[in-house]
């Protein structure tokens, strides 16, 4: 069974169609990356899967069951999203504890205390952070909270929208290590959106290169590591970020 399957997916914002005829199958336990420049529609695909861009046609199926256009509780339990900006994605007037417990309240789950403690430990945050507000945390700590929030319902799939692009290099390394560890421990499936190819190389098994709302190429990460991407546009993208990798 595939974790995420997209079939002939078109997504529109009002009259503008931003994603055209995308078909993808992501296996369970796989870590898959969508790369491309801004406006290529990569984040929009995540939003559509998460239910935040409801104007789509085609088919989205998650863990074998088709996704409806409406918000879907069962879906939320299996698939959660982590957003790019840890400064914007946490409620400024709720403590970490409130933020983490909210999914539990929504889904009527018990054992708040234990679960919050466990998830904080899983993302490597000390318990003393539990009753702090987001503004009392650093960017890396906030992103850990955002990941913890996504993990609260014990989903099997995480949608990661540029999870490290707002962070410093050394903090990025910590978060990437954390994501890798969580995937190993919990057997999660990742669908990662990024424009940072080295991050893909570190964290993912396969990638799809997107441009103007279409998938240009789907490749194995080995092809990326060898610099053997097939399509001219992918190679261009590779050169643009590959160049930055070699100190002049």
């Amino acid at each position: 069974m595939n974790a995420i399957e997209l079939t002939h997916l078109d997504i529109a914002y009002g009259p503008t169609r931003v994603v055209h005829d995308v078909s993808l199958a992501i296996a369970e336990g796989e870590s898959f990356a969508l790369v491309g420049e801004s406006g290529s529609g990569k984040s929009t695909i995540l939003k559509a899967i998460a239910g935040l861009a409801p104007d789509w046609t085609g088919e989205i199926s998650v863990l074998g069951s088709p996704r409806a256009h409406r918000p879907d509780r069962g879906f939320a339990k299996s698939c959660q999203m982590v957003f790019q900006d840890p400064y914007g994605s946490l409620h400024p007037r709720k403590t970490v504890d409130d933020c983490l417990a909210e999914p539990l309240a929504v889904h009527g789950l018990k054992g708040r205390d234990g679960r919050v403690k466990a998830v904080l430990a899983a993302v490597g945050l000390d318990q003393r952070f539990r009753f702090r507000y987001p503004h009392q945390l650093s960017g890396g700590q906030r992103q850990r909270v955002a990941i913890a929030r996504a993990l609260m319902l014990e989903p099997r799939i995480l949608l990661l929208d540029e999870p490290t692009s707002a962070l410093d290099v050394s903090v990025q390394a910590e978060i990437l290590n954390l994501l890798k560890k969580l995937r190993r421990e919990q057997g999660l499936t990742y669908l990662l959106v990024t424009h940072n190819l080295p991050v893909v190389s570190f964290l993912c098994d396969r990638l799809a290169v997107m441009r103007h709302g279409r998938i240009v190429e789907v490749a194995h990460v080995e092809a990326l590591k060898r610099g053997a991407l097939a399509e001219p546009y992918s190679r261009e993208l590779y050169a643009a970020s590959g160049g930055t990798l070699q100190p002049a």
Binding site: P198, F202, R226
Partner: peptide, 18 residues
């Protein structure tokens, strides 16, 4: 800082953290 950056041909299992 140099070491913490993932490389294009990343084969390290874990990135060194400062």
């Amino acid at each position: 800082l140099l070491a913490a950056m993932p490389r294009m041909d990343e084969d390290r299992e874990e990135l060194p953290v400062l």
